[in-house]
Design a protein around this nucleic acid. Structure first.
Lengths: 247, 247
DNA sequence: GTAATAAAGTGCCTTTTTTACACTAATAAC
DNA sequence: GTTATTAGTGTAAAAAAGGCACTTTATTAC
């Protein structure tokens, strides 16, 4: 087998990861200041080349692990970029993934060792090649995904408060939400378990911790039921660029 | 340039196209009975290998042109498949595109010359490799896309009647819609122009033709406004497989 | 030419969902 | 014990979605 293919071109295939984190009430990206050519010294996404013997998903996982030391990262394929002039050198096909991680001090050090930094989503600098385009697409995909799937929890610690969760939604969608309506909607989904414990750092009164009930969620999806995690109606949307939306 | 890469593996990159058409009130796919190895005689999607000098989009366009003779096809990148054992022979990365075309007698002949046939979406046979997975994903993407973007018109002739349009929505979503509510919603979007002409094949009374006003639509999107093309509420969805939804 | 047939076209009312809005509760700091 | 700060709670009005039945138009058959 394989001889059918012998006439065809082969290509470099890269994996680039858009890594989201949530910290200090802000949605952030993990970006690299490149220590190697090409484009040494410029900002870029974390990436690497696909090996012959690994799947795309495995490759993306490997690259995420290299940078963060983490293993069970929530990760989804985003889009594949392949314009002829998209990078310097021989054209490389780039399959992109976005990842959601819980920012943590330990991982932070590993990331810093790679020259990586957390950058607020609205302060992303000029990145090499078409990486800014990738970031924009990842952000708009995250925004539309969060309506359909409870992925926000991937960005928060195991235990979180409702004000924290609301902050996250506000940071992702860049809009203020009504506290009462937010709580009503998010609780009526029925997948949050209230704990007896309170978080007392950020207020005198303290806010109760909640946990996302993953088992219950999986039970529902197995039955073929999916929920909307909408916190706001979205019949008419304003976007800065329709291209970013992939629409 | 290019020497930075010299250590990395190169890969075959294929393009596979999921081609949708609408005919006889049914949503259909253009499928091939393969005339060549590997898997000669089996059903598959139309595909081909990426050339060194073309972008992914150009490659997909080339392949669609080969099969249909058409040039201005609505086409979008769907997903990239790269499991190590996804095909026979050396692993090939497959970048998939879905396309929406207006079925036409002329094109039909060209397609048939390639051994291609239109097959109703719920009668799709077993396809080679992971092509059935691709079809399922394309269908669920089409379903969610049609809510956000007026792409249904890509499947209909220039002039179409409201009953035809409703049939299309019903075929895509596999559900019956109320005539009155459908017309109300689709017309209040304000992007359909009623013509003075009637279609008289399918009823004695005849139904007025409408045209999709693309200029008006582009004007809106340029302003950063997007509409919902929902014809039904979708807070709670039943799906047969969550994987197909890419969720 | 008139009756039968068949699909196109039209409006209103009910239910559900969304939104807007303001006070009380708990605790720590002083 | 007063003050300050954020957590937590319910209701009513507005908007959207959903359900439902008759009239119109033109052809065909007699």
């Amino acid at each position: 087998m394989g001889n059918y293919y012998s006439n065809y071109d082969k290509h470099y295939v890269a994996l680039d990861c858009i890594i989201f984190g949530f910290e200090g009430g802000e949605l952030k990206l993990l970006l690299l200041k490149r220590k190697f050519e090409p484009a040494k010294g410029e900002w870029s996404l974390m990436g690497g080349f696909l090996d012959k013997s690994e799947s795309l998903d495995d490759g993306a996982r490997r690259i995420l692990h290299q940078l963060t030391g983490l293993n069970d990262i929530y990760m989804e394929q985003l889009f594949t970029y392949g314009d002829v002039n998209r990078d310097s050198g021989e054209r490389t096909i780039s399959v992109t993934y976005y990842a959601l991680i819980k920012v943590d001090e330990n991982d932070r050090k590993l990331a810093e060792a790679h020259g990586a930094q957390w950058v607020a989503i609205n302060k992303v600098p000029k990145l090499i090649f078409d990486h800014n385009k990738m970031v924009n697409k990842a952000l708009s995909t995250l925004r539309s995904k969060i309506v359909r799937k409870p992925i926000g929890f991937e960005l928060l610690p195991e235990k979180f408060t409702l004000p924290q969760l609301q902050n996250l939604y506000e940071a992702i969608n860049q809009e203020q939400l009504d506290k009462r309506n937010f709580r009503k909607r998010i609780l009526e989904i029925g997948l949050l378990d209230k704990l007896d414990e309170k978080e007392k750092e950020s207020s005198k009164k303290g806010a109760f911790y909640y946990k996302f009930n993953k088992e219950k969620y999986l039970l529902y999806t197995e039955k073929g039921l999916l929920f909307h995690f909408k916190v706001k109606k979205d019949n008419l949307i304003k976007v800065s660029s329709t291209e970013d939306l992939g629409i």
